[in-house]
């Protein structure tokens, strides 16, 4: 896809989002009490202003692009990634979701160790042995610091409770 189109797409998405915001999200998500005395004090005013600013911003972006005032071209540093880039992104998304869920079950320390290992697998790091050591040492050390020095109760599951 040429760059020109990308900004137009972006502008359209932004405009669509602004409309959804103004007509769906704000009416549903922001409650306006009946005791509001004047419009300048209403909780709805500010989000509505923002929604229309976003809309105008998106519109201008499309307009700018259509009028040919495109941004200077950059070297696209996103081009030519290593094979399987989209797959890796999807894997990372799954990893993040799993990481979050795992915290509730096995605690933050072990979840972090697992996440670290899986991430180095996704990256296919050359430093396998180091990765294995760091995967366990780093969360344990961080845990020790936060729990024993800073007094933050790091969540733990029932699986191997740490002192």
């Amino acid at each position: 896809m040429p760059r020109l189109h990308r900004n137009i797409w972006l502008g359209l998405i932004v405009m669509l989002f602004a409309l959804a915001l103004a007509f769906v999200l704000i009416p549903v998500g922001v409650s306006s009490p009946r005791s509001v005395r004047s419009i300048v004090l209403s909780p709805i005013l500010w989000p509505t202003i923002i929604a229309w600013m976003i809309f105008i911003g998106g519109g201008l972006l499309v307009g700018q692009q259509l009028l040919g005032r495109r941004e200077p071209d950059h070297l696209d540093e996103w081009a030519n990634p290593r094979h399987g880039a989209w797959f890796r992104l999807a894997a990372l998304a799954v990893l993040m979701a799993g990481y979050y869920l795992a915290i509730a079950y096995i605690g933050m320390v072990w979840a972090s160790a697992l996440a670290f290992l899986v991430l180095t697998l996704i990256i296919r790091s050359r430093y396998r042995i180091t990765a294995l050591i760091v995967a366990f040492a780093l969360p344990l050390f961080t845990y020790a610091f936060f729990y024993h020095v800073a007094g933050v109760p790091i969540p733990q599951g029932e699986f191997i409770r740490l002192p």
Binding site: A115, P139, F146, V152
Partner: peptide, 17 residues
Amino acid sequence: SLLFPSVLVLCVFGVYA
């Protein structure tokens, strides 16, 4: 390849704290 996984773990701990 080791730094970024470490950053992820540190961020999770830090943001939680």
